[in-house]
């Protein structure tokens, strides 16, 4: 290869890189976008992510492909995105745990507020409290009164120590000033069957896992932790409405990109996510599985998660969870 040719080639390459970076934001997205999910295919986060890809593709004009990077309670998927090229083609679809809980209970190699950048939040199905149909209480006040009687003990199930299902219940226990016994299960589903079988009194669970027993009249919801009512049980009041303001916590899914991604790209993504969240088709599908799709700007969302993270840090310490 002659020197001239080498030189020409070098100039050409430099030129493409230069122009490429200038034009990147204008042409973005010019190829398919990978949406990293921190959990295995088929789980609730995965399904929510898959549902969101349909409207996102519509507004981004490019295919959005799910990549399941499971493991480490969500840490692996988060790290995958943190270490990806900050070009807007690797986006994280995060569940709450790896952002607001995991850093307080485990050694993780990332700071969720520094190493990854939030694009937007999407409201997700809140946690609900489920009891057996024939339980002698129908809401939190009655539950509180019932278990304050001498000799009574409230045993609640959760999806495991350090899950939001558990932490929200701890917050409620604090707000109520009622001692509760925590019986951790590996999945929400086991909590639900243990309520139905009478092995525990109540359980905190995602609405989807409670929907069949509630619809069939074998169980009832006592409260919703989020700020909206559950579509399939619209009369069930939120924790806040029932007077336990400090325990009211919304759940969410959120989009993150690696640190260093250009603002122009983040803006484009934000816009597409906002449009997607208003897409009527998406709203209908999400409503069927009781996922609210409320859009949250990065600013509001960061404020929310920072507050949640602080509360959880406090609880984790008090409950002796995770790292010592």
């Amino acid at each position: 290869m002659s020197i001239t040719l080498k030189l020409l080639l070098t100039i050409f390459l430099l030129w493409t890189v230069f122009v490429g970076s200038v034009l990147a934001a204008d042409t973005y997205p010019s190829k398919n976008i990978t949406l990293v999910v921190q959990w295995a295919g088929g789980g609730s986060t995965d399904l929510a992510a898959r549902e969101s890809t349909v409207p996102l593709q519509k507004y981004l004009g490019r295919a959005v492909v799910i990549k399941n990077v499971a493991g480490g309670s969500g840490a692996l998927g988060t790290v995958e995105v943190m270490r990806a090229k900050p070009d807007g083609y690797t986006v994280l679809f995060s569940s709450p745990g790896p952002i607001i809980v995991l850093p307080h209970v485990a050694e993780v190699p990332y700071d969720p507020f520094k190493d990854i950048v939030n694009v937007a939040g999407l409201g997700a199905a809140p946690i609900v409290i489920l009891a057996k149909k024939d339980a002698p209480y129908n809401n939190l006040k009655e539950m509180d009164a019932y278990f304050r009687q001498p000799g009574k003990e409230l045993r609640y199930g959760s999806a495991g120590a350090g899950t939001v299902n558990h932490l929200w219940m701890v917050m409620l226990s604090r707000a109520m000033k009622l001692r509760m016994t925590h019986v951790p299960f590996p999945h929400s589903g086991e909590g639900v069957t243990n309520v139905l079988g009478g092995h525990v009194d109540v359980t905190s669970t995602e609405p989807i896992t409670a929907i069949a027993p509630v619809k069939e009249g074998r169980a009832k919801l006592l409260a919703v932790f989020g700020s909206d009512h559950i579509p399939y049980a619209p009369n069930v009041q939120t924790v806040k409405e029932q007077g336990y303001t400090t325990a009211a916590q919304d759940l969410w899914h959120a989009f993150y990109v690696p640190k260093g991604t250009s603002q122009a790209i983040i803006d484009k993504l934000t816009e597409a996510i906002k449009k997607a969240s208003e897409d009527p088709e998406f709203k209908t599908i999400a409503a069927k599985t009781d996922r609210s799709v409320k859009f949250m700007s990065a600013k509001d969302f960061t404020a929310l998660t920072k507050a949640q993270s602080a509360v959880i840090a406090d609880i984790a310490k008090a409950e002796g969870l995770g790292k010592k």
């Binding site: 295995a40 088929g42 086991e190 639900v192 989807i208 929907i211 069949a212 619809k215 599985t289």
Partner: peptide, 27 residues
């Protein structure tokens, strides 16, 4: 019959049923 999923496989099946308005139960 219980509508409670225990594995990823059955969780996928449950969401398919719920989306279509079919709710598992003994009935």
């Amino acid at each position: 019959t219980l509508g409670v999923p225990y594995s990823v496989v059955t969780a996928i099946m449950l969401s398919a049923m719920v989306v279509h308005g079919v709710f598992p139960s003994p009935l």
